[in-house]
Amino acid sequence: MPDMEISEVLVQPYMLRAIAGIILIAINASVAGSFTIFRNVSFLVAGASHSALAGAALFILLGVYGFPANPLIGALLFAIATAFVAGYASKEETNTAIGISFAMSMSLAILFISMIREYAAKVWSLLIGDLFLLTYEDLYLITFVTFLSLMIALLFYKAFLFISFDSEGATAFGLNTRRYNYLLLSLIAISAVMLLKGVGAILVFAMLVAPAAASNELASNLRDVFIYAFIIALVSGFVGIAISFFFEVSPGAIASLLATTIYFFSLLARRFRGD
């Protein structure tokens, strides 16, 4: 890249796709990320993103054996399955249930990879991710799904908030808490998959949860949690891309590093404010 002007680089298709990717990631980090914090299910994000990896591996395997299917669909199915396991488990068992499906998915992922060694790199790429390798097809799918999640979150905003705050009260006030819980957990799991190709399963947690966790410390009302989370994710992503332009480093890693650092500073800021 060094022998190109910045302005030239900025209009390169791969760069434009990466920028679009960052914007979509920031929307997910704002909507699903904030609800992850409210509902207190951050472990689901780790579980879902790794289960998604197993789903993608399975679909790649199916492709090798003559049943071509988009790996992202497999990823979505497995992630949603994890959300349902989490929703089915009782409150005390949620984290254990997610942990076990996490472990099971990793076993499956490694099993599938061992069956298709020649294609293993395809699966590994989802573990690490690469913003610059996003294709137009990926972007269309991510845009469509992100838009859908946004609509669902807007439509059910109050219900999601109520069950996160006080599920007993929500039920008493007539909400179908179970149904909304499954819907919300699925929404979070789906968002985790939306970040998979761009930042990789390992870093999904950092990019989806850290911005909202940081903004939750700083914001003085709910609306600001969503706004700050969006801004933190967006800025982290852009800085990641900018730095990777000068140095040969992963933009996703820089972005995640920044987002998680902001979280720790926001903790400090809150302590200093004294609340």
Binding site: I37, N40, L161, A219, L222, V225
Partner: peptide, 16 residues
């Protein structure tokens, strides 16, 4: 009208 046990409520976010 129902008022739940406060211990069952989670308000670790800036709900007003």
């Amino acid at each position: 009208g129902f008022m739940p046990q406060k211990e069952h409520i989670s308000s670790n976010f800036p709900i007003l």
